[in-house]
Write a protein that binds this DNA or RNA. Structure first.
Lengths: 116, 116
DNA sequence: TCATTATATGCAAATATGCGAATATAATAA
DNA sequence: TTATTATATTCGCATATTTGCATATAATGA
């Protein structure tokens, strides 16, 4: 998905769920189902939130078998490196991030998508 | 106004009018009426857009006589320096910025608030 | 005092957004 | 093929946001 204008990018950032998703994606490429589980999101909410980030060009996804893996997009980080850095720091400092990362870690210990 | 959380700040950025205002405020402290005139905003739209930026803690204002002067807030730039830098660059690159700054320049040549 | 100017705000209509529930699609496995 | 799993999308509702218009407030100056 083509990188959007700043207004759209900021609008995509302006939501707690989407910021939590971006916080998890700072470290790893992640499968949709891992994000959904780690953040306790409904399936439709997870998918829709990711679609908004994807449409804004902030994340990119690749499909492998039945799984979709998402990560911060190369277009975004190369076009807006300063914003990307700012976002990284902001995400790290979100009150929700510590717990969310712990949840993610547990989920990945028990089961990874590839083994499901 | 107290600096808000990142979600609120990004939400405030997620609007074309507010980004245009921030683009003008990168260079100068400005009077509300200058912003209104330079961007051809309705009075209520200018006032309300500034209120949203103010409530998010992104800008601060001081009242002098009948005029209100706004600028990027110290709280914002010291708490989120990277974001502040990213914003500065993004604002400079907005397609609207060149014209808006020209308009502002003309307005300030003809009349400054202090002389009105 | 009253008139003027700058700014803020209440209200209402239009529009946008967020989210669950249901449904659709796509890939895999049996 | 059918069943299952992962993901995406559509629908509908509740809520939030945007914006103009009208009005209110506040400062100034005559």
């Amino acid at each position: 998905m083509r990188l959007s204008d700043p207004e759209t990018i900021f609008k995509a950032f302006g939501d707690a769920t989407r910021l939590r998703i971006l916080a998890l994606l700072q470290d790893h490429e992640l499968c949709v189902c891992e994000i959904e589980a780690a953040l306790s999101l409904s399936q439709s909410n997870a998918s829709r939130s990711l679609t908004i980030l994807k449409n804004a060009g902030i994340i990119q996804s690749r499909k492998q078998a039945q799984w979709a893996y998402c990560r911060i997009s190369d277009d975004f980080s190369s076009r807006y490196p300063e914003l990307c850095t700012a976002l990284e720091k902001i995400c790290a400092e979100l009150p929700s991030t510590k717990n969310d990362k712990d949840s993610l870690k547990k989920i990945r210990e028990i089961q990874s998508c590839e083994k499901m």
